[in-house]
């Protein structure tokens, strides 16, 4: 799973380099990468889901796990460019009310900047 990182100020933008299914063990790789970022002190994260074609319960668990860890570190994780199919799963599992979702990376970044 190829993940690209871009730092803008104190926020790290996380995106997938190519189309990916966030499922099974693949999602655990993603979770561990994000947790490593948090362990390195980077606690303002935007995850761009634009390349995610499919997500299953493991993918959802990975996102929730990352969110819990980053919030425990007094940071936050926002989602950007959530595809319709992923958004449907978030709604189904009520996780759409847990994650702060934005149309684009830039919008998510602005939300972080507005929060100070």
């Amino acid at each position: 799973m190829d993940i690209a990182l871009r730092q803008v100020g104190s926020t790290v933008l996380v995106s997938f380099v190519r189309p990916v299914n966030l499922e099974g063990d693949e999602s655990l790789q993603f979770r561990d990468r994000v947790k490593n970022l948090i362990a390195d002190g980077r606690t303002r994260l935007v995850v761009d889901l634009g390349q995610v074609k499919f997500i299953d319960s493991f993918g959802l668990g990975a996102l929730v796990s990352a969110l819990r860890v980053v919030r425990a570190a007094n940071g936050d994780l926002k989602l950007a460019a959530v595809p319709q199919s992923v958004e449907a799963v978030l709604r189904l599992t009520r996780l759409n009310t847990v994650f702060d979702c934005h149309a684009t990376m830039e919008d998510a970044l602005k939300a972080f900047q507005a929060a100070g």
């Binding site: 319960s57 929730v64 796990s65 189904l92 599992t93 996780l95």
Partner: peptide
């Protein structure tokens, strides 16, 4: 259990998704 947005779980969504869909 139904998902709880105030205390989201990291697992246990599989059977819930099957039953909902």
């Amino acid at each position: 259990p139904d998902p709880d947005p105030d205390n989201p779980r990291e697992g246990g969504y599989g059977l819930f998704i099957m039953r909902e869909t």
